[in-house]
């Protein structure tokens, strides 16, 4: 639809992606933060910031695939809480050696996949409405998390958080995880699966008529989303070094914001996980800048809401010129 637009926008190059505004906002925040926070670009400071941002980045990547298929997953926070308590409980029950940690990680990821399977079956196969159904399963997963670990506690062995906070193969562990996640995103972007996801989200009837297995594709997206929520939970466990049945409550709506900021249409069919990574980093940086600008903590929610809406509105205006 053609409309009159401010001339400043018209002067921009024509082929800007929808996440350009997010990338620009992120760049500005990085510069501002670099000026405000002494040593922002030091290795250890970058590593500590990445540690804080990584869980939302991972959840936002997984959320993207669900949103691409035209669905939504509001249960990711509850999945993360359940994975966290299962992991710390299994580790505590099997000793505190490396074997116990590996058993805990495996159990946590298995639980994540089970959660994804429940979501995928209810929505992809039974046909429940995605938003309300994942809200319902979130209540179930949270209840199970509270059953397994009623109160926060149960510390993990030192080796767990030392490895997470340290380095593997010469790279900081958090950076390695981020690179692996980016590798996954790049790999999946080249697979037919992502095209199918977009087809399912963009034109469900057409995708069905062209012979795509809608159930399997939507179910797979929920499995990926839950798996990444599981990865995020394992990272949060490395950060907090203990279990918490109420962990991750802001991840659900936060990841949807990150996905939208990353230029993925919430109605499905258009977008990609690379933008979601930028969106999640932008959300993280806002908190950082507010802290180092010396603004009272109370301003965080307000400023975050304003910046998110401004960036999204800017993205819509830029995209609409085409």
């Amino acid at each position: 639809m053609k409309r009159a637009l401010p001339s400043a926008l018209s002067a921009l190059p024509a082929a800007l992606p929808a996440w350009a505004i997010t990338a620009a906002a992120l760049t500005v925040l990085v510069i501002v933060n670099g000026l405000l926070q002494p040593g922002f670009f030091d290795g250890t400071v970058l590593q500590s910031n990445l540690t804080t941002f990584l869980p939302l980045v991972l959840v936002a990547i997984g959320q993207t695939y669900v949103v691409l298929a035209g669905d939504i997953d509001l249960s990711v926070g509850a999945v993360a809480a359940l994975v966290n308590v299962v992991t710390v409980t299994v580790i505590a029950a099997t000793g505190d050696g490396p074997d116990a940690i590996l058993a805990g990680l495996a159990a946590g990821l298995a639980v994540a996949l089970a959660c994804g399977l429940v979501n995928g079956l209810l929505i992809g196969v039974v046909g429940l409405q995605p938003m309300v159904a994942t809200f319902g399963t979130a209540i179930l997963f949270s209840a199970l998390a509270l059953r397994i670990l009623p109160q926060a506690g149960l510390p993990v062995p030192d080796a767990y958080w030392q490895t997470y906070g340290g380095a593997v193969l010469g790279l900081p562990t958090v950076l390695l995880i981020l690179l692996l996640a980016i590798g996954f995103v790049a790999l999946l972007a080249r697979r037919p699966f992502q095209t199918w996801l977009k087809a399912v989200g963009g034109n469900r009837g057409g995708a069905f008529q062209s012979g795509l297995d809608l159930r399997r594709i939507r179910l797979s997206a929920y499995l990926i989303s839950a798996l990444f929520a599981g990865f995020a939970a394992l990272c949060l466990t490395g950060e907090t070094a203990s279990g918490d049945p109420l962990l991750g409550q802001s991840l659900g709506l936060g990841s949807v914001s990150a996905v939208a900021l990353g230029g993925t249409l919430l109605s499905g069919g258009v977008g990609g996980a690379a933008g979601s990574i930028l969106g999640a980093l932008l959300l993280g940086m806002i908190g950082n800048v507010i802290f180092f600008a010396g603004l009272p903590f109370e301003y965080q929610t307000l400023v975050q809401g304003l910046i998110v809406l401004a960036a999204l509105a800017g993205g819509v205006l830029v995209a609409r010129r085409r």
């Binding site: 949807v256 914001s257 919430l266 109605s267 929610t301 307000l302 809401g305 998110v308 509105a313 819509v316």
Partner: peptide, 19 residues
């Protein structure tokens, strides 16, 4: 502006709560 209702109202929620 044609923002998706989900994120528009989510952003508004944050602005009101923060305000």
């Amino acid at each position: 502006v044609r923002l998706p209702p989900l994120v528009m109202t989510l952003g508004m929620m944050a602005i009101i709560q923060g305000g």
